[in-house]
Design a protein around this nucleic acid. Structure first.
Length: 103
DNA sequence: GCTTTGACTCTCG
DNA sequence: TCGAGAGCCAAAG
């Protein structure tokens, strides 16, 4: 369906620079809604899989969260982005977090 | 058309 | 510090 809400989610995901990550909450807030569920729900069904770097989107706790292609694959991709992950948790999460509000 | 669930987040106990 | 509950939006049943 790609509603306006989802479109914004995908757009913001694509805005995430390499080597950085963002959280569902940040995206939700940037869009205007404080609903991180809809963000994850949109990404779970995102038609731009492979186009939108959804693997750079993680939970607010620093956990990788989930991924349509598999959590393991997501971690692998993040590690390739110079992002260190330990036990499904991002090590330097606070240092590589990307805020859309700063834009 | 209403109810349930989900790749989540925050607050209270 | 850990566990349970409430809240937001959107899609599926």
């Amino acid at each position: 369906m790609t509603t306006d809400f989802e479109n914004k989610v995908y757009y913001l995901c694509k805005k995430i620079p390499k080597g950085k990550v963002s959280t569902y909450g940040e995206i939700a807030k940037t869009i205007g809604n404080n609903c991180s569920r809809a963000v994850g729900n949109a990404l779970s069904k995102n038609p731009y899989l492979g186009v939108v770097p959804c693997h750079r989107v993680v939970k607010s706790d620093g956990c990788v969260g989930g991924f349509a292609s598999g959590q393991k694959n997501k971690i692998k991709l993040l590690r390739k982005e110079a992002i260190k992950i330990k036990n499904n948790k991002i090590k330097n999460f606070k240092k590589i977090i990307f805020s859309f509000s700063s834009s």
